[in-house]
Design a protein around this nucleic acid. Structure first.
Lengths: 148, 148
DNA sequence: CTATATGGTCAAGCAGCTTGACCAGTGCGT
DNA sequence: ACGCACTGGTCAAGCTGCTTGACCATATAG
């Protein structure tokens, strides 16, 4: 594959990612969850299963723990999360989603599903499943980083 | 497709996009082009063919023209672009890439090709072409927006 | 029981964006 | 040909989200 084709693939991928991010964010806002930014979604993804510590969240987001702490402050202030004492470590605090936080997470899933449905209209269900499988196989682990 | 599957697809897409962005940026830096941020790449993409005005660039990046102007200042200061008088409009200035700017563009293409080659190792050439075709079909136009 | 490592916060600073005000040049309507 | 709204661009000030640096409280290894 030529460099220019690789660049076309990269550009398309980034354009799709950017558009998807925007779509999800707008969908979440439209469902009544105010003051939510795209970055919050990635925090939600980490907090959702069982909560997380600020340090853990910082590592996941690839930012300093101070930045993660500020982000948590914001989520707490807006009613999406709360800090609880950590059950096993008196230094740490466990950040967990509130009921509103869970609602926001579901709203994000709905918005994502809406966007993916449109891809289904363009490509067909079969191709979307293929896309999903391919992306899952090449997705890196490590900290989540902004696409640009 | 269930909402949770759509979310898994979305998360994978954004993870791949984030990783790709990081890979390209690191590759460009490693090739000796200092002080380049991911955002610059999208400016380069617009400037490359025939140059562009600041206002045009701003629309393409989805930011104010003041922000675009500052970005151009930075590119000029670092030797990647230069401002020329616009041949058809005395108000406007045409921002064009310098030779170093073109070198940086080529470096980005090489770095992208490197990342895509690894996908080829994981998926096979055939699947990568399929991925490319699918993404090109669902890529939105409109301004380029940060993935989060 | 000390010494070092780890989780978290406070404070200050900085980079990249925004809004608002403004000037220079364009080009349409009359 | 001329007035006037429009457009391209810059200057200045301010905000937001991040960083670095300093620090405290608790945990853990020796």
């Amino acid at each position: 594959m030529q460099n220019s084709e690789a660049m076309a693939l990269s550009a398309a991928l980034l354009a799709v990612a950017g558009g998807l991010t925007q779509r999800i964010n707008e969908g979440v806002l439209a469902r009544g969850f105010e003051g939510v930014r795209p970055a919050h979604g990635f925090a939600f993804a980490r907090l959702a299963p069982d909560g997380a510590t600020v340090t853990d969240l910082a590592a996941h987001l690839g930012v300093t723990k101070q930045a993660a702490s500020q982000l948590v402050d914001e989520l707490v202030r807006k009613g999406y999360a709360e800090r609880r004492p950590h059950p096993e470590d008196a230094r740490a605090r466990l950040v967990v989603l509130t009921e509103r936080g869970w609602g926001c997470t579901r709203a994000a899933e709905e918005a994502a599903a809406e966007a993916v449905r449109e891809w289904g209209d363009l490509l067909g269900e079969r191709e979307v499943r293929s896309l999903r499988r391919q992306l899952l196989r090449i997705a890196p682990d490590g900290p989540v980083r902004p696409a640009w």
